Computed example of a mutant assay.
Amino acid sequence: MSVHLVTGAGSGIGSALARRLLERGDELWLLARDAGRAKELAARYPGARTLVGDLAEPSRLSWALGHQSPPDRLDSLLHVAGMVELGRVGDLTPKIWDQTLAVNLVAPAELTRLLLPQLRLSRGHVVFVNSTSGLMASAEWSAYAASKFGLRALADSLRAEEHAGGVRVTSVHPSRTATPMQQKVHQQEGKEYDPSLWIDPESVATTVLAALDLPRDAEITDLTVRPGR
């Protein structure tokens, strides 16, 4: 039985992944931003265990995990949580930049740092659910895209550093996916939201599981997932 820690399990891709991992009998740990959210996740995913840590405050993650009992070994760390705020460069405030970079980049880096000993022990796998915005930036997506470009750099550096020890690192770049975040994006764009036009979160979860389940003789480093219609 493998042990996984997932961020962003409350909805979308993270929710699909958490459910699929539980269904196949793996041990699941979920990161929640506060105790109330942890209680909700525990009720939604019977058998899963929770840790509390706010990704919006990366500098406090070490303190938070230090007062809890994370797993002794970890087969995968799945970074799925994220946030987005659209806006023109001339309009985005430092607060939006700070929030976006904290949740989408600095927190994944810090959480990875804190859990690397467990990942090294099991020759585990770190998966960063990135975005096609981490490959190409569009108008009004500067803060989000910058955080995702940075996340790809983090993954590439981590892979180079940990490959010799057997830790695998994968970046998954989905295009627009039918999640609550995508609904918010459409609201910000002033467009009607039709989830049937976009990737099903289950399809992205299937992609992540394929990377996790790949035999040890190979490693998927980067995957791009685009709508099939």
Rank of each mutant, 00 (worst) to 15 (best):
Gly124Trp: 04
Gly47Lys: 10
Trp141Arg: 00
Ala107Asp: 11
Ala56Thr: 10
Gln68Asp: 07
Ala32Met: 01
Ala35His: 13
Ala102His: 14
Met83Glu: 08
Met136Pro: 00
Ser59Pro: 02
Gly87Ser: 09
Val80Ser: 06
Ala48Leu: 02
Leu78Asp: 02
Phe149Gln: 10
Asp156Ala: 10
Gly150Ser: 09
Lys148Met: 00
Arg20Thr: 03
Leu116Lys: 07
Val126Cys: 04
Ala155Ser: 08
Gly53His: 09
Ser69Glu: 15
Leu101His: 05
Leu135Ala: 12
Leu101Ser: 07
Leu31Gln: 02
Glu40Trp: 10
Trp141Cys: 00
Ile96Asp: 01
Leu17Met: 03
Lys95Arg: 13
Leu74Pro: 00
Leu77Tyr: 05
Ala145Glu: 00
Ala32Leu: 07
Ala139Asp: 12
Pro46Tyr: 14
Thr100Phe: 01
Ala139Gly: 15
Gly90Asn: 08
Asp75Pro: 11
Val103Glu: 03
Ser131Met: 10
Val84Tyr: 03
Arg24Ala: 11
Glu27Cys: 09
Gln118Ser: 12
Arg60Ala: 10
Leu154Val: 06
Leu119Thr: 00
Glu162His: 01
Gly47Met: 05
Leu65Lys: 12
Thr100Leu: 00
Gly53Phe: 04
Tyr45Ala: 11
Tyr144Val: 14
Arg113Pro: 07
Leu61Met: 04
Leu74Arg: 04
Tyr144Pro: 06
Ala16Phe: 04
Leu115Asp: 02
Asn130Trp: 02
Leu78Thr: 04
Pro46Ser: 04
Asp156Met: 11
Ser142Gln: 05
Gly47Glu: 12
Leu115Ser: 05
Arg152Leu: 06
Leu21Asp: 03
Leu78Cys: 07
Ala160Gly: 12
Ala146Cys: 08
Thr93Glu: 08
Ala32Phe: 11
Val80Arg: 02
